[in-house]
Design a protein around this nucleic acid. Structure first.
Length: 556
DNA sequence: ATATTATGACCCC
DNA sequence: TGGGGTCCCTAATA
């Protein structure tokens, strides 16, 4: 209905001015509009209320207080101005035209008209390509990158849900990790501090450990020398080392030995990585400090080192896969930094890679370790083609929607560890697109050497955003964490059951709040209230008009 | 159906 | 430098 028509439909309302001060014209406008919405509802709800109000304001008028006139018109919920409305129209989101583009952040156009719109191809900002190598760099280049293919093989995209664990965790997934040798084992961490172990070969074989951490698991790594044990860094300020067979966990370090003394002193652990050559666990906290822990003695080595701006979160650490002395860190001070482990001290970084916003992740390329891929909440992926080249500016900036910073686990672009050309990366998309009448958030596969969108992977059953994604180190498999659920994807042509013809490909595990109050780690009664799962399953089924999943009970 | 809530960065003074 | 207000597409729950 047009705003004009509405204005005529409803009576004009008078309301008493709230202050005696002389408001500026713009203030007055805003005030008017805010009241309007309220009034509109009341008018519809109850005419008497409206009449009373009018009488009140008439009385006020007699007393000499000037009333202001309220007109009823629709207003944009984003900019509070009339004449347009932002929001979903069906499955398509209409931007507020008064705001900068939601995707690329530039003013003057909306997401729909954005030249970088993720539709058929990504927008690439090719930063000035200044990777002119000096002679020394050439030597390194030739030494370290002999196996990197210049010619890209055809990418194999896992684009069909093969199996899933739905509502597996009780809070959203924060990280995923494949087992280094067991091809069917996936580890998952959640916001509540729980760690899940899922054998997705036998889909129903799962386990959630609830007593390892008390809040967010930010990063997990397998022990490179003992694949049965796993290290995890958490916002509870501890590093845990858990034996997957027994579930027994020990705490390597606790940064809050005196408990909660307020938010200004509570230390949280975010970035973490293992350095097998040096036998180290590296972790970093929310105040900018790096800690080193010896994996043999479980003792802290040396003093904490300030590696990012004091007081800011260090969210990512990555050891170079080829050169163990190189460390990459990133964090909330808008920088990714390259370090020489042999000379770790505040301010001694080899390079500082500047970003416009928080850097969610920074990774060396998985095979040669000579490229860098970062994800920043300025909605850009950045690629440095060679760490031996010019690092002053990235080789490419790829505009991509992933900038939401609360309620969701931060998005991180992840390399495909199997791609010999080191050019395929996966990252979930925040912004939705209308796919056959459903607003879906795909998982994007991007060729980071060109910025091309190689594939957008989605399923009509997955309506939630999928910020956590990891590609299998050996198989054509993608693991995704979306809200509380985990999905395993395979290429269409290979989408046969992993182990045998097992109908239980989708396992629904409802871990309700009531269950939460039970003892940590108590999984024994998990299957007792299976009836709920099937009803939930039906609900999900009916939503979709495409081939549906087989939803089954949780059993083990 | 609608309100609530957890929650993080950033901006402004 | 810090606290409080603001912020476009959340997801689950009551």
């Amino acid at each position: 209905m047009a705003p004009q028509t509405r204005r005529l439909t409803f009576p004009k309302v008078f309301i008493e001015r709230e202050t005696d001060s002389e408001p500026s014209s713009s203030d007055e406008e805003e005030e008017e509009e805010e009241v309007e919405e309220e009034e509109e509802e009341k008018v519809v709800e109850n005419k008497n209320v409206d009449e009373e109000r009018m009488e009140e304001s008439l009385e006020a008028k007699k007393k000499g207080k000037a009333p202001i006139t309220i007109s009823l018109k629709k207003v944009c919920k984003v900019c509070k101005k009339a004449g347009h409305e932002a929001g979903f129209k069906g499955a398509t989101y209409i931007d507020c035209p008064m705001k900068p583009c939601f995707l690329c952040k530039m003013p003057g156009h909306t997401t729909m008209a954005c030249p970088h719109r993720v539709a058929t191809e990504h927008g690439v900002i090719p930063a000035p390509h200044r990777n002119t190598l000096n002679p020394l760099a050439y030597v390194f280049e030739r030494q370290i990158r002999p196996d990197i293919l210049r010619i890209k093989p055809a990418f194999v995209i896992p684009d069909q849900v093969n199996c899933a664990v739905i509502r597996y965790h009780s809070r959203r997934i924060t990280c995923l990790e494949f087992h280094p040798t067991n091809n069917n084992l996936l580890l998952s961490g959640d916001k509540k501090g729980q760690v899940g172990v899922w054998d997705f070969g036998k889909v129903y074989e799962k386990m959630v450990y609830g007593n390892i951490h008390s809040c967010i698991v930010n990063n997990m790594r397998f022990n490179p020398t003992n694949h049965d044990s796993v290290y995890a860094a958490s916002s509870d300020g501890t590093i845990s080392c858990t034996d997957l067979e027994t579930g027994i966990s020990l705490s390597l370090m606790n940064l809050n030995p005196d408990g909660w003394q307020g938010p200004s002193s509570w230390r949280m652990l975010y970035g973490m990585d293992m350095n097998s050559e040096k036998g180290l666990v590296l972790v970093a906290d929310n105040f900018g400090f790096l800690y080193l822990v010896d994996t043999r003695s479980n003792n802290k080595i040396g003093e904490p080192i300030l590696i990012h701006k004091k007081g800011t979160k260090v969210v990512g650490l990555h050891c170079n896969p080829v050169q163990p002395d190189l460390l990459l860190s990133c964090g909330n001070d808008h920088f990714a930094r390259i370090w020489d482990m042999r000379r770790m001290e505040a301010g001694s970084s080899l390079h500082d890679l500047a970003h416009k916003r928080v850097v969610n992740s920074a990774y060396f390329s998985p095979l040669s370790g000579s490229k860098i891929l970062t994800t920043s909440i300025d909605n850009r992926l950045r690629v440095w083609d060679s760490i031996f080249g010019d690092l002053d500016s990235p080789s490419r900036e790829i505009v991509h929607s992933h900038d939401f910073n609360r309620h969701l686990t931060p998005f991180r672009a992840e390399w495909d560890p199997k791609d010999p050309s080191e050019s395929l990366a996966v990252i979930g998309r925040y912004i939705s697109e209308n796919y056959n009448g459903a607003a879906l958030h795909p998982i994007d596969f991007i060729d980071i050497s060109t910025g091309q969108l190689v594939a957008e992977v989605m399923d009509p059953n997955i309506t939630t955003i999928t910020p956590v994604n990891k590609l299998h180190p050996r198989d054509d498999v993608l693991a995704s964490g979306s809200s509380r659920s985990i999905f395993m994807w395979r290429p269409k042509e290979k989408s046969e059951p992993v182990e045998q013809k097992d109908e239980r490909k989708i396992v629904v595990c409802d871990r309700t709040e009531k269950k939460k109050s039970r003892k940590y780690g108590d999984e024994s009664g998990d299957d007792s209230d299976d009836d709920k799962f099937t009803s939930k399953g039906k609900k999900l089924k009916s939503k979709s008009n495409k081939p549906e999943w087989k939803l089954t009970r949780c059993s083990s």
